[in-house]
């Protein structure tokens, strides 16, 4: 009888995870060394590490929740690998459903896969379906990255040669405004979804509603509040942690308001 919790499946998964971990440690060490060569203050680099770690924990827990959501049908090994390599909170559930259906698994996400042929097929579909970025990345990352870096530098040079800042070329735009504009587009998309986006009618929490607005507002107010506090009291150590703290406070607020508000208001999602 096929066992979804066969220890060998965990061994296979662990090998993949160890590779990911090793790669991250390698890049971290190289960037750290380069940072020191560039004269970036060690304290600043340490702050980047600690604030990034704090920023990651709540999201990592929600990724873990997705692993658990997939576990009844697939066990823990496949979701663990899929959410650790390329995987994405939003794609993996869809990918698992499509793979199960194509491989003839009856009962969907609630019924454990009991046939190793189906299990292997699902592993192939989920792995191949998501791997395209790794195929194209070695070809396009360098040219894209270089173009972006050099456009800004060319403009800077042109401006310093002229001794004027009046030119409004594409390079200057890329140098000063393209990155903020791209970031705002990205952040704004998720904020717009929290205000007016629709989810699945049967799922709580995936569409815009009372709770998503409350969470959003608390996150914004808390972040601004802590930012002002850090500046006013000159707490420079607090500045890198403003965003992670704002995020955690907003998630706590979601719990509090969910329990305090009447049920029909707390669960209200205006577009499903």
């Amino acid at each position: 009888m096929f066992n979804l919790n066969d220890p060998m499946l965990y061994v296979f998964a662990a090998v993949v995870i160890l590779f990911v971990l090793a790669q991250s440690v390698f890049f971290l060490m190289k960037a750290w060394k380069r940072g020191k060569e560039l004269g970036i203050d060690k304290k600043k680099l340490r702050n980047v590490v600690s604030s990034s770690a704090l920023f990651t924990v709540p999201s990592a827990l929600s990724v873990l929740a997705t692993v658990i959501a997939l576990a009844p049908a697939l066990g823990l090994a496949i979701p663990w690998v899929r959410l650790s390599v390329i995987g994405n909170l939003m794609y993996e559930t869809t990918a698992a459903e499509a793979a199960m259906e194509a491989m003839g698994h009856q009962g969907g996400m609630a019924v454990p896969v009991s046939d190793p042929v189906i299990y292997a097929g699902i592993a192939w579909v989920m792995s191949l379906g998501i791997c395209f970025s790794l195929i194209i990345l070695p070809f396009v990352a360098k040219p894209l990255n270089k173009k972006f870096m050099s456009a800004g530098k060319k403009e800077e040079k042109a401006q310093s040669d002229d001794g004027t800042k009046k030119k409004r070329g594409l390079g200057g735009f890329i140098n000063d405004h393209a990155t903020p504009a791209i970031f705002i587009g990205l952040i704004g998309a998720f904020i717009a979804r929290a205000i007016i986006g629709a989810g699945k009618a049967e799922t709580f929490g995936d569409g815009a509603g009372v709770l998503s607005i409350i969470t959003l507002v608390v996150a914004i107010v808390a972040s601004i509040g802590f930012e002002l506090l850090a500046k006013k009291l000159k707490l420079t150590w607090l500045e890198p942690f403003v965003m992670p703290i704002g995020m955690i406070i907003a998630m706590i607020a979601a719990i509090v308001f969910f329990n305090v508000l009447p049920e029909d208001i707390a669960l209200l999602e205006w577009r499903g």
């Binding site: 709540p58 999201s59 903020p180 970031f183 705002i184 952040i187 704004g188 998720f190 904020i191 929290a194 998503s212 607005i213 969470t215 959003l216 507002v217 608390v218 996150a219 914004i220 107010v221 808390a222 972040s223 601004i224 930012e227 403003v242 965003m243 992670p244 704002g246 995020m247 955690i248 907003a250 998630m251 979601a254």
Partner: peptide, 11 residues
């Protein structure tokens, strides 16, 4: 919403 609210505020 928590993540992008916190991130968006300062930005």
């Amino acid at each position: 919403p928590a993540l992008f609210g916190a991130l968006g505020a300062g930005y």
